[in-house]
């Protein structure tokens, strides 16, 4: 007798914490999410990247169980979030994109309130220390800075000791040093073995934190990969840039390099190189023979930002 049960992907890959197939969400005629697939494995920091209005928040709110979907299959921790209850929420932590702290309570009181909601909460003092609010435990939330409030949000999402944490644009509006601090906290979640689903529109944030990245634009996934390989980045040419002294043009460069010149204006030369090490060696030998130093020599692979802008602008 044939086995009529279809083996779900969760059984085949027990490490999948989030698994999404053919997810769609329409508002009237507008399709905010136009059929996406996602897979997030246990213990990874997954960055979900896209411009404002690309469908990021809609997707994450469906995964969090705050919105219903129009079509598709969604499994988060083996459960459909649209039908999930308290037992599921006990295993999930959420940092919302926009939420203000509880009013009239201290940091410690907020955590005590939330700890009461969960079956097996973490230690309160330890959680406060984890997000770096040790010195602020007795302060009312109204006295916290924007960055400190966000850390309190993270602490509240962690207090239930969840397996999976959603962070929706956790550093939007931060100054650079507050962002660095927040990144330290998020990287610390990896040490705790948590799975993190991070949405952001900051490229450097994804590059610094994520194990894997998916880029969404106009409701579709346009690229997926590690920060190193996203959008074919590892196969793209490197840019070699330098300035030649007055009187020396790009046509004076060695034969092997002349074909690589992408631009040369006012002595400022940019080469496009697929073999950067060999090409730079050729350039260096040529320059040293002539007693040139090329002090502004710069070799750069396309940044993740370049890749991202290319991916999202094509669709915009």
């Amino acid at each position: 007798m044939p086995d009529l049960r279809r083996a779900g992907d969760d059984e085949l890959t027990p490490d999948a914490v989030i698994s999404v197939r053919g997810l769609r969400k329409s508002y009237g005629d507008v399709e905010a999410v136009a059929g996406i697939d996602l897979k997030v494995s246990r213990g990874e920091i997954f960055a979900f990247l896209g411009p404002n209005g690309a469908g990021k928040t809609t997707t994450v709110e469906i995964l969090e169980g705050f919105r219903t979907r129009s079509a598709g299959e969604v499994s988060v921790l083996g459960v459909d979030p649209a039908r999930a209850g308290g037992a599921w929420r006990d295993r999930v932590g959420v940092v919302l994109q926009e939420s203000q702290p509880e009013t009239g309570l201290t940091v410690r009181e907020c955590l005590r309130l939330y700890a009461g909601y969960y079956s097996a909460p973490r230690d309160i003092s330890e959680t406060i220390a984890l997000v770096g609010l040790d010195g602020k435990a007795g302060d009312l939330t109204e006295q916290l800075s924007g960055g400190q409030r966000r850390r309190l949000d993270v602490a509240l999402a962690l207090i239930g000791d969840p397996e999976l944490i959603f962070l929706d644009e956790p550093t939007t509006g931060f100054d650079p040093s507050a962002r660095r601090n927040a990144w330290g906290v998020i990287a610390g979640l990896r040490e705790l073995g948590k799975t993190v689903f991070l949405t952001t529109h900051y490229m450097d944030e994804a590059e610094n934190l994520a194990d894997r990245i998916a880029v969404i634009a106009k409701g579709r996934i346009v690229a997926e990969g590690t920060p190193e390989t996203l959008g074919g980045r590892e196969r793209m040419a490197a840019l070699v840039r330098f300035t030649l002294p007055d009187g020396l043009g790009a046509d004076g460069l060695p034969e092997a390099l002349r074909g690589l010149v992408r631009s040369a204006a006012n002595g400022r030369v940019t080469l496009e190189s697929r073999r950067p090490l060999a090409d730079v060696k050729t350039l260096a030998e040529w320059a040293l023979e002539r007693g040139l130093d090329l002090p502004d020599l710069d070799v750069r692979r396309p940044s993740l930002e370049d890749v991202y802008l290319e991916l999202t602008e094509e669709r915009a």
Binding site: A87, D90, G93, S119, A157
Partner: peptide, 18 residues
């Protein structure tokens, strides 16, 4: 009303509390 608009109620509902 203030708690709802500040996202406080939404965050509470992201926890297991009924």
């Amino acid at each position: 009303t203030a708690q709802r608009e500040a996202g406080i109620l939404k965050r509470r509902r992201s926890t297991p509390v009924p």
